[in-house]
């Protein structure tokens, strides 16, 4: 199931349901020529599409935590990410880590001064082979055809198997009702309830209406978002002209987030 998209799944489910119950009715309509007989999930007219979305982070353009704050702030604001004081219950989609933590298997004692103290943006890697999707017992977390790994907050049973499976620590769990801890609720994006897992969604809701991810929008060009399947895309251009690294490459998960260090 890992490779197939949610759309295919929904289509299949729709077809089976139609096949079982509604076929005679649909046939009747079809014969009168009134209704399209195949149900389809349509993309929005403006929706951005890709074979595989990817993010390239040019860390050379950052100096301190301050440069990264606007991105984290806008992400957490539009996605109704609560601010919990208790560190154990912390929810984060986009945050910063030092090199020795985010690239824990690639660090050493003699890093240059810039990299040693530089904060690195940390988020879900939207892996090519996501361990979280493999582990989820309900398909509440799934990979779309365009490579984005999403969460269905309404299906998640809160078993947290995905959190144990994720080798990047990208997932957060709602240990309590998050709503009282959201300063200003964005009504265009769902809030979550207690007991479900959440993480970065590559701004899937924005892509659907033709907008690039919010963090990229406010990054002043330090972040590039685009299609890995398109050789002319901005991300491919950056990848071919810069040396980039990914987190824990030895695991073979295939992150879609690249770092220019």
């Amino acid at each position: 199931m890992e490779e197939s998209s949610r759309r295919t799944f929904l289509k299949l489910a729709g077809f089976s349901a139609l096949g079982l119950g509604a076929k005679p009715v649909l046939d009747a309509f079809a014969s009168s020529g009134g209704v399209q007989s195949k149900p389809m999930v349509m993309k929005g007219e403006k929706a951005l599409q890709a074979k595989r979305w990817a993010l390239v982070i040019d860390t050379r353009k950052f100096k301190s935590e301050k440069d990264l704050e606007p991105m984290i702030e806008v992400c957490h604001k539009i996605h109704n990410v609560p601010k919990l004081e208790n560190k154990r219950h912390e929810i984060k989609w986009l945050w910063t880590e030092e090199f020795k933590h985010i690239f824990s298997s690639q660090t050493h004692d003699f890093l240059d001064e810039r990299v040693k103290d530089l904060p690195f943006l940390t988020l879900c890697n939207h892996c090519e082979k996501p361990a979280c999707v493999r582990a989820c017992p309900t398909k509440a977390t799934f990979k779309r055809a365009d490579g984005i790994v999403l969460m269905d907050f309404h299906r998640c049973i809160g078993c947290r198997f995905c959190m144990a499976a994720c080798p990047y620590g990208s997932r957060s769990f709602n240990f309590r009702d998050p709503r009282p801890f959201i300063k200003e609720t964005n009504l265009k994006f769902p809030t979550r309830m207690k007991g479900v897992v959440e993480k970065c969604n590559f701004c899937a809701e924005r892509l659907a209406v033709g907008k690039i991810p919010a963090c990229v929008e406010v990054s002043k060009g330090a972040l590039a978002f685009g299609d890995l399947g398109d050789s002319k895309s901005k991300v491919r251009e950056l990848l071919s002209s810069n040396f980039t690294i990914r987190r824990k490459p030895a695991l073979g998960a295939g992150p879609s987030v690249f770092y220019i260090v």
């Binding site: 890992e2 017992p137 309900t138 299906r155 049973i157 078993c159 947290r160 479900v196």
Partner: peptide
């Protein structure tokens, strides 16, 4: 241990053989 115990039957509603659970 479930965060949403009322949804436990989702495991049967959406059987997922790639999950060890």
């Amino acid at each position: 241990d479930l965060g949403q115990p009322t949804r436990v039957f989702n495991v049967l509603l959406h059987p997922t053989p790639n999950s060890v659970l």
